[in-house]
């Protein structure tokens, strides 16, 4: 999105030369307009008493902010909002810290083969869908599952990780870390590899031990990417992870685990309350957009980060 001053006039010859470029973009552009922009326009549903048979932009009855007033008064909505923020907050914090810690520790392993092996195994969960991981977790963490067998073996009581409101959020947060920490460490490992080895040399000559080298050389060397990752993760304040929660939760833990996305799904798709569900979705979209925009702006400002 860099702007340059244009001096040349736009001529017919230039138009002809650039025409094929427009044609190349056209198919993808059409799909994006249809499947991204039309649904954005479809957000008018939030202000309508929506009846599906009349169609997306049909002759619907308008009802102003009635849908918003209705959903904001629902206890289920407030509960979902709270859960979303709590779960998302911890996922952002731990999702930032754990990969950094993992990258630092992995960097201390000198054997390349051992390091490669650890990486290969730890990246793996990232590539599995939450259906697969959910299936595994539901089995492993069930009351008769292997984790509770181990707890019983240690003389502890069984914990119903996924069915108890006291444990559900913690389980969700840590299992998300489990899926993503290895993969998340890639960018940090790359940053560590990019640090000039002469800096370590100099630090050693100055008498720095390993901890001091990590603190004064490695971490400052990673500062840019850490700030960037922190800033970019701000956009997720209302993203508690639909794919995960949907595959792990059950009515027993709605109290602690129901999030905005699952709330919208049940309200809109299962109960067919399209107007109110869209209102909730729109609330989430607007808040998220503000946060994402701010985070991109900060990343651009402080890390000179540009997407395009």
């Amino acid at each position: 999105m860099k702007k340059k001053g244009y001096k040349k006039k736009y001529t017919a010859a230039m138009f002809r030369r650039e025409l094929p470029l427009h044609f190349m973009i056209l198919p993808g552009l059409a799909l994006v307009l249809l499947f991204s922009y039309v649904p954005m326009g479809g957000l008018v549903m939030a202000f309508q008493d929506f009846i599906p048979s009349k169609g997306l932009f049909g002759d619907q009855k308008w009802c102003g902010l009635e849908n918003f007033r209705f959903v904001f008064s629902l206890p289920g909505f407030n509960r979902a909002l709270q859960n979303t923020i709590i779960i998302a907050f911890w996922k952002i914090v731990l999702g930032l810290l754990m990969p950094i810690l993992f990258a630092l520790l992995l960097n201390e392993i000198r054997s390349v083969r051992v390091s490669k092996f650890i990486q290969t195994v730890c990246y793996l969960p990232y590539f599995m869908s939450w259906v697969i991981l959910g299936g595994i977790l539901v089995d492993v963490l069930s009351t008769s599952g292997i984790v509770n067998q181990a707890l019983n073996g240690l003389g502890m009581d069984s914990i119903f990780f996924l069915g108890d409101n006291r444990y559900f959020r913690t389980t969700a947060i840590w299992s998300d870390i489990w899926k993503n920490f290895g993969y998340g460490a890639i960018v940090y490992l790359a940053a560590i590899l990019g640090i000039d080895t002469e800096l370590y040399e100099a630090a050693r000559i100055d008498g720095a031990n390993r901890w001091q080298q990590t603190w004064h050389v490695t971490l400052p060397g990673m500062r840019m990417i850490i700030v960037l990752m922190l800033v970019m993760s701000l956009g997720n304040v209302l993203n508690a992870g639909f794919d995960q929660i949907f595959n792990l939760y059950s009515p027993a833990v709605y109290e602690s685990g129901d999030i905005i996305d699952t709330f919208v799904y049940r309200m809109g798709v299962i109960d067919a309350q399209y107007g109110p569900a869209t209102a909730v979705g729109m609330f989430k979209s607007v808040v998220s957009t503000i946060f994402i925009s701010v985070s991109y702006f900060l990343a651009y400002k402080f890390a000179d980060y540009r997407i395009f």
Binding site: V32, L34, F35, S36, G41, G42, M45, M282, I292, F308
Partner: peptide
């Protein structure tokens, strides 16, 4: 010439989305 226009059209979808229900109805 129109690169910037296209970039914004595509980039905006990374910022904002219509969400689940309008997509489903579509």
């Amino acid at each position: 010439r129109f690169r910037t226009v296209y970039v914004w059209i595509f980039f905006f979808t990374m910022l904002f989305s219509g969400g689940l229900i309008p997509g489903y109805i579509l």
